[in-house]
Each structure stands twice: as structure tokens, then as C-alpha cells.
Simulated assay, not measured.
Amino acid sequence: MVCLGNICRSPLAEGILKSKVDATKIYVDSAGTGGYHIGNAPDPRSIKVAKAHGLDISKQVCRKFNVSDFDAFDIIYAMDKSNYTNITNSARNKADTEKVRLILNEISPLNKEVPDPYHDAEDGFENVYQMIDQACNYIAARLEQY
């Protein structure tokens, strides 16, 4: 799960998907393409909206996306086109590039983006939560088949 700063969208996506899959079989993590918040907890508004839905993401620690993530993960979900481009630009080969997907394409292949709620009011975070939750329902159901 990758967004720009790893404090708003991707921590929510990590927490949501983790709550829907078997952690002994599927490892979920998040990162940012920018290194602005390395070592910090997620944005308090992301923590708040997650908590309102019964999830605790407060212990997550922001990190920067690294080329080694292509080796560590089978699928890399980008929250928007800009981050998709940043990730694929760091790909070493076609196999790396093929791992990268826009998360909302899992539910609607229209290249829709999860908007960055950082500069929004509180309801922007709820909206983002709902979008990611819907995508993660589909992802989790598909992963159960493996």
C-alpha cells in the first residue's frame, strides 16, 4: 500500500486489509514515495477514522518505498497515478512493473484515484476510508482463493 507520505491513505489501506486477511498467510505493509514523515505515526485524522471503524493503526511507523519492496511483495498498490508513476519509475524490470496496480482498479478498472485527504476536513478521511475499504473487501476475497 503506497501513497505519497505514508501518513494518510496507505496506513489506512494497510490497517483495513490487515483486518480482512489471515496474517499468517498474507503480509501487508505500507510506504510512501516521499520520505517526508519517516519514523512518524500516521496522521491523527487517519488514526481517528480507523478507530471509528474498530481499527488501531496508531502503532504503524511511516517509511519510504524502497526498490527492495519489489522483492518483498507480490502486489504493490498505489493510491493514485502520481505514486503509481513514482513506483514504476523505480522498477528494475518488467516483472517489477507488473506488480504495481492502482488500488481502486480492483473494483473499477477506470484508473480512479484515492484522493489525498491531507488538506481536507475530517469527512475527507471518512470518504477515503470507504473507498479503500471497498477495494480491500474485493482484494481480501480474491486472496482467500489462494
Rank of each mutant, 00 (worst) to 15 (best):
L4H: 08
G5L: 01
G5R: 05
I7E: 02
C8E: 04
S10I: 00
S10E: 06
L12N: 08
L12I: 04
A13H: 09
E14L: 00
L17S: 02
S19E: 00
S19L: 02
A23Q: 14
A23L: 15
T24E: 15
K25Y: 06
I26S: 00
Y27A: 14
Y27F: 14
Y27S: 13
S30Q: 03
S30I: 08
G32W: 04
G34A: 15
G34W: 12
G35E: 03
Y36G: 14
Y36M: 13
H37R: 06
I38N: 06
G39A: 07
G39I: 10
N40E: 15
A41K: 14
A41Q: 13
D43E: 08
R45D: 09
R45Q: 10
K48I: 02
K48Q: 15
V49C: 07
V49G: 08
V49K: 07
V49H: 06
A52N: 15
H53V: 10
H53K: 15
G54P: 09
G54Q: 10
S58C: 11
R63I: 03
R63T: 00
F65A: 11
N66M: 13
V67C: 03
D69E: 12
D69S: 11
D69A: 11
F70H: 10
A72C: 12
F73Y: 15
I75D: 05
I76L: 07
D80P: 13
K81Y: 07
I87T: 09
I87H: 12
T88W: 02
N89F: 05
R92W: 01
N93V: 08
N93L: 07
A95L: 04
A95T: 08
D96T: 11
D96Q: 03
K99D: 06
V100P: 04
V100S: 05
R101A: 05
L102P: 13
L102H: 10
L102G: 12
I103P: 06
I103C: 03
L104R: 10
N105F: 03
S108F: 11
S108H: 12
L110K: 11
N111G: 06
N111F: 10
N111R: 10
D120K: 01
D120E: 12
E122K: 08
E122Y: 14
E122C: 00
E126C: 00
V128D: 09
I132G: 05
D133C: 10
N137T: 03
Y146W: 05
